[in-house]
Structure formats: C-alpha cells, structure tokens
C-alpha cells in the first residue's frame, strides 16, 4: 500500500513539475504581473481529493522548490511559496467546510494564490500600492480557478476509479 502511494505521489510531482514548465512557456499579459494559467494547481487539486491534505501539501512544496531552482529564480520562488502556502491553506479550509464542490475549492485556491503573491511582493518591495493589482489578479484567479476546478473534478473521478490504496 505504501509503495503504491509513493509511486503515485512521485507521478504527481513529475506532472506538476512539467505543468509549471509549460506555464513558463505561455506568458499571459493582462497588464499586471503574476497571472498564470494555474496548470500546476490542477495536480494539487487532484492530489487533495485523492491522497489527502498532508501529501498534497508536500507535493505543492516540492513542486515550488523544484521549479524555483530550475525554471525560475529565488525571488520568484519566494512569491510562489507565499502564494502556494496561502492557497493551500485556503483550499483545505474550503474543502473541509463541505460546502463547496471541486470548482469552488479551486476558485478559492486560485484567488488566494494571487493574494499571497501580492502580499509577499508588497512586503519585499515595500510598495503598498501593489494592492491596486489585486482586483485584476482576483478575476484572473477566478477564471483560472473555474477552469482548473472543472478539469480537476473530471480527473479526480477517473483517477479514483483506477487507484485504491488497499
């Protein structure tokens, strides 16, 4: 049982890693920095619904550190960490509340990822006016969250059919 889980987690790490790379190849220009497709969050959502919070959190952190050292730089790793941790906590709370479906949980994740990044950026460059980016980034997070959430639910359903941990 344990080996199965380790293999599955490794697979997800690889997938999240590749998605992050693809994301860096697709720049999105909506006038403000920090907007991304959120493809990697698809993997985190699927992990959250299939192997539980602890493993999903581990996956999220491993992904950020790996990506930080390869495709990005240490500064952007800092922003990703803030976004990743805040977004993960928010998604856990949203999921535990039992009031939202995968789409809702994913939307919460997308929005809070951007909120976390902006807060970290405000702290790093000490420029409070970065807050002005937030409305646009919230909408971007919403849009990406909806798409990723719908996809995530579809993938989760299929993955659950294939894997059982017993």
């Amino acid at each position: 049982m344990k080996t199965k889980k380790i293999a599955y987690l490794g697979l997800l790490v690889a997938l999240a890693f590749i998605f992050s790379y693809i994301e860096t190849l697709i720049p999105i220009n909506i006038g403000v920095p920090g907007a991304k497709l959120g493809l990697a969050n698809l993997v985190i959502i699927v992990a959250l619904y299939t192997i539980g919070e602890k493993n999903a959190f581990l996956l999220s952190m491993v992904r950020i550190v790996l990506v930080g050292f390869t495709f990005a730089n240490l500064a952007s790793m800092l922003y990703s960490l803030a976004g990743g941790i805040l977004s993960f906590l928010a998604m856990c709370i949203a999921k535990r509340s039992g009031k939202l479906s995968t789409t809702g949980v994913s939307v919460v994740g997308g929005v809070f990822h951007n909120v976390g990044q902006i807060l970290m950026a405000i702290w790093v460059v000490k420029t409070a006016s970065l807050v002005y980016y937030l409305p646009v980034l919230i909408i971007a997070g919403l849009a990406s969250g909806v798409a990723i959430g719908i996809l995530g639910a579809m993938v989760t359903k299929r993955v659950k059919k294939v894997v059982n941990w017993d």
């Binding site: 009031k99 939202l100 479906s101 789409t103 809702g104 939307v107 919460v108 929005v111 937030l134 409305p135 646009v136 919230i138 909408i139 919403l142 909806v146 959430g149």
Partner: peptide, 16 residues
C-alpha cells in the same frame, strides 16, 4: 454545492 460555488464566484467577481 454547485449553488454555493456560483455564489462564491459571483461575490468575488463583484468585489473585484
């Protein structure tokens, strides 16, 4: 849950 999702999305959109 679907209804709550929509409410969440609507509220966030309006606030933003």
């Amino acid at each position: 849950k679907k209804k709550n999702d929509l409410i969440l999305i609507g509220v966030l959109l309006m606030v933003a």
